[in-house]
């Protein structure tokens, strides 16, 4: 990918979207890269739409403003597709990674994605429920982003998930999230 990759995340409060952006930034530190991860702060409420951003660059990141032209758009909650235009400002070769059980072609249509833009689906909520019993789709979404962008190796990402979740959760939950990340990586579908 390019010298600098800009990612915009769309999720709802309580889904772990901000944590996903943080884990990705940390995992991308390798190789002397510069990283940023920051949410858009508003009235933080569970279930309210939110955005978070990542920049990953081989050069020093001096820009301190929201990402307007993302090369990667991660949609952690597909119900947002009905309410907001997640494709706004996306680059002409942008990659959309959407948490959905639907057919990728249907999502492509809904996004109005162009031929050059890629649309990737991962059923992250189902994977999360199967792996650790809760509808928290952030770790399988991270796995999917890792697979599609190649920004970081799966092993490095898993190590970071282990580190980040290890501060807060029991071994069972950590293992579940590691499995969910791995499955998110493996179960992406393109349409």
């Amino acid at each position: 990918m390019a010298d600098m990759v800009e990612i915009r995340w769309h999720g709802r409060g309580g889904q772990g979207t901000v944590t996903a952006a943080k884990v990705l930034a940390d995992a991308c530190l390798s190789g002397g890269r510069y990283v940023q991860a920051f949410p858009e702060y508003g009235p933080e409420r569970s279930g309210a739409p939110l955005r978070a951003y990542n920049r990953i660059s081989s050069k020093e990141l001096r820009m301190h403003c929201p990402v307007l032209h993302p090369q990667v758009v991660g949609v952690v909650d597909a119900t947002l597709l009905d309410g907001i235009n997640v494709a706004e400002g996306a680059t002409e070769d942008a990659i959309f990674i959407v948490n959905s059980s639907k057919d990728p072609k249907e999502i492509r249509e809904k996004l109005g994605a162009t031929q050059k833009q890629r649309v990737i689906i991962v059923d992250a909520t189902k994977i999360a429920i199967e792996c650790f019993g809760r509808a928290l789709p952030n770790s399988p979404m991270l796995g999917a982003v890792c697979k599609v962008t190649g920004l970081v190796s799966l092993d490095a990402l898993l190590e970071d998930v282990r580190k980040s979740f290890g501060k807060k959760f029991s071994q069972k939950i950590i293992d579940g999230n590691l499995e969910a990340t791995r499955r998110g990586y493996e179960e992406v579908r393109e349409g």
């Binding site: 952006a21 930034a25 940390d26 510069y34 990283v35 940023q36 990141l61 301190h64």
Partner: peptide
């Protein structure tokens, strides 16, 4: 800077 620096993750 509040939030921009205080709450953003950077290298």
């Amino acid at each position: 800077d509040g939030f921009i620096t205080s709450h953003s993750i950077e290298r």
